[in-house]
Design a protein around this nucleic acid. Structure first.
Lengths: 228, 228
DNA sequence: AATAAATCACACAATTTGGGGGAGTTATAA
DNA sequence: TTATAACTCCCCCAAATTGTGTGATTTATT
């Protein structure tokens, strides 16, 4: 399932340092599909601002050469076998926090995307990205942006938004929110300037409405239903 | 402080319905600065795909006419006095969830941005946006995207990412994560397949490292420092 | 050999939690 | 006008949880 690990292409160091002085943006590509990888390399090197220092077909190889490659931007596929994509991002980021990682992938399922972002990806493009957009995205990421495909952007924004249909009243929602922060009934009461007994009342109602009977279950349900 | 409420401009309905049938995208503008508002109106109406149905200088007025205006997209300033911007988004969204709200603002402070997104804004542009980019953004939002200025995008992405420098061990982090979900020591122990006493040990260490002595304080500190 | 990490044990007091029963006020809808 | 919903507060009880203290053992890693 996993092809043999190999360094696909690595330029010599002396020339690279030279190039970097000229303001070139150093790029590393991690992608297991030969065709795609090579087309990325060509695309990058066609642009005078960028240079592709190395390209790998596994994260493991890329990580081995991380220090030497001294990349500014890594373009990586996270659709590789196993969790090596997400895990790769974490390792690279913890070793070299200043590298911008652009994920390029066929997947746009919630989980993969958010895992990649949490792991430290700075941008997230789907594979149908146009060559122009890819170049633009690299520029953008270097300028402090966070390029995303439109569908990804909507998912990301959507993750901030709460459901409009909540069974809870506004006061109950307030109480639940404070519960989420680990506050005790007493603390909640103090913060809302109401009696502890009132808080207990609200919580009883919350539990009934959410059909749960523990704090943890209430928080879980509320999180899943996006009502907090 | 608050200028007198007035409807600045509203087209007649019969003509609008007609136009909508022709596939026009109906836009409402909420902005208190006359100059900016008018330049937005002009810009929008110059484009054959869009029509500015109405423009208001307060949210209150816009909300009153919400049903009549039947907008597809609302372009709004959230830098208005008070919380009326954020609160306005909430009201509009809860009344008409299908309207896409694009916020255009001078502010790019964390809090304002995230509040707007949580309230239901679909896009977030800073006011120095170019006319072309603004038009592009409206297109984008209608196509299911979530246009953001580069700096905003980076903030949003950044909000997913954890700090790489955590004083906690991986096991301690796991425990803290489950605490955040409202789980009791017993539940945490079950979930991690360890003894309850071990969980208590971990929590003691967590408290010491974070320099706190309650659950709520630990969660707060961990959230602030982005270690969970 | 030493240190950090993870595991487990016991004890104690104080607090929290979930469940049960109520009851009053206010505002809005039928 | 009368419901009804929302918010407020009160009491009781038993079980569980929490914070703190003071330990110990094992397994890696240095």
């Amino acid at each position: 399932m996993h092809t043999a690990v190999k360094t696909v292409n690595r330029l010599q160091n002396y020339s690279l340092r030279n190039m970097n002085q000229h303001g070139l943006c150093r790029i590393v590509i991690i992608e297991d599909d030969n065709l795609i990888r090579e087309s990325f390399v060509t695309l990058i090197n066609e642009n005078e601002k960028f240079i592709c220092i190395a390209d790998y077909d596994t994260c493991e190889e890329a990580i081995k050469n991380l220090a030497n490659d001294n990349a500014d931007v890594i373009l990586m596929d996270i659709g590789l076998p196993g969790i090596s994509g997400i895990e790769g991002i974490k390792r690279i980021k913890s070793a070299k926090p200043n590298i911008d990682i652009l994920t390029v992938t066929v997947h746009d399922e919630d989980e993969k995307v958010f895992n990649a972002l949490c792991a430290g990806a700075t941008g997230y493009l789907t594979k149908n990205v146009s060559p122009e957009r890819l170049i633009e995205a690299i520029d953008e990421v270097r300028l402090g942006g966070a390029p995303m495909s439109t569908s990804i952007a909507r998912m990301v924004i959507g993750s901030f938004q709460k459901s409009t249909l909540s069974p809870l009243t506004s006061r109950e929602t307030e109480v639940l929110q404070l519960m989420t922060k680990g506050k005790s009934y007493t603390m909640i009461a103090d913060e809302l300037h109401i009696n502890k007994e009132t808080v207990r009342s609200h919580i009883k109602n919350i539990y009934q409405k959410l059909n749960v009977n523990t704090k943890a279950a209430a928080i879980e349900k509320a999180t899943k239903d996006r009502i907090i």
